[in-house]
Computed example of a mutant assay.
Amino acid sequence: MARLKLFRPILAGANLRDRLLACIGALVGIVLTGLICGLAASDTQHLLWLVPPMGASAVLLFAVPASPMAQPWPTIGGNTISALIGLVVAHNMPISALAAGIAVGGAIGVMSLLRCLHPPGGAAALVGLFAGASSSYAFPILPVGLNAAVLVGCAWIYHRYSGHSFPHVAAAPPPTAKELPWTFSKADLAAALAQTGETFDIDVNDLERLLREIEQRTLARSYRDLDCADLMSRGVISVRLSTPPEEARALLVRHDVRRLPVLDKAGGVAGVIGLRELAGSGASLRELMTPAATASPQTPAIGLLDRFARDRVHAVFIVDDACRPIGVVTEADWLAVLTRGLA
């Protein structure tokens, strides 16, 4: 079993299925790139018109498509620009170890400035250098740029069916309540990255989404045994559809609550009313009320946090099977629980 660990993927989130599919994708991508580009070769001997850096680009495009360095612009721009830099060096100084260092170092600098850093670009710079002063300045376009463009096209088609997004766009992080003490901000994330002094091969938005998911899972685990029945306050003050708006307003002020459930003839929650709604024009509560936020007593209490944060509700009414109110959970109730947990 210890030997098998040596063959486990070292990348976070990698699995055997994705690696096998990446092998197939790279195989097809390189074959198609070589054949398509071979058709553009002026020399009929170049039936396979490929430059070596495309092998390294294929690893990124098919195995780690979410990497910022595997996106279309870094792949095409990084290879093409680096090959150009290597060619410029070859036209201006003899090929030597120093020339190779200047080509690769210059390629890294220019790729960084143009936001197209791509590891195979270092190899493309050496390809341009070794192409020599006898090569024309069209070399970075044909074959290097054409190779990269065709390979990116193959990756785009492949990932339509692989289940991965390409070009990669980071999904929006789950919503959080900013006022809660356990959340972090983007400024905290930026400060932490600056403090580490390291460069990570992950988009900042992907990193934020991952940390938000971890944050919510950790919180859910901490409060997994708490449901709405444990958290709710009983003795809900309510009004009927037939209650005059003036009476509802008086109840809100007298009991210092923000929302009252409006009950129908069967006692079920038909809507909710607050001072904001009562300030509008309307002759009855039916005309003024808004939809109520409800949940069952068995609902995990952690599930209400998103509703407070995303839907901006101030109270969730806990109802029985007949939709009759038996309790209410407010933002203050949850903050009190979090405060006890953090004390």
Rank of each mutant, 00 (worst) to 15 (best):
L4F: 12
F7V: 08
R8D: 06
P9I: 00
A14H: 08
R17W: 06
R17Y: 12
L20G: 09
L20Q: 00
I30V: 14
L39R: 03
A41P: 04
Q45P: 00
L47E: 02
P53K: 01
M54E: 02
G55N: 05
L61V: 00
A66C: 07
A70K: 11
T75D: 00
G78R: 05
A83C: 15
L87N: 10
V88D: 07
H91G: 03
I95R: 06
L98Q: 13
A99H: 08
A100M: 10
I108S: 07
M111L: 11
L113F: 13
L117I: 05
P119Y: 01
A125L: 06
L126T: 10
G132R: 04
A133C: 05
A133K: 11
S134R: 10
A138Y: 05
I141Y: 08
L142W: 10
P143M: 08
V144H: 04
L146R: 04
N147A: 13
A149F: 15
L151K: 10
G153A: 05
G153D: 07
S162N: 11
V169M: 07
A172Y: 02
P174T: 06
P174H: 14
T176V: 15
T176W: 09
L189I: 15
A192R: 10
Q195G: 06
T196W: 14
D201W: 01
V204R: 10
N205K: 09
D206A: 15
E208D: 12
R217H: 13
R224I: 15
L226H: 02
A229R: 12
D230I: 00
L241Q: 07
S242K: 00
P245D: 08
R254G: 07
G268S: 15
A270L: 02
V272S: 13
L275D: 14
A279F: 05
L285V: 06
L285F: 06
M289W: 02
I302A: 12
D306T: 11
D311N: 14
V313I: 15
C323F: 10
A332P: 00
L335E: 13
T339S: 14
G341R: 09
G341V: 09
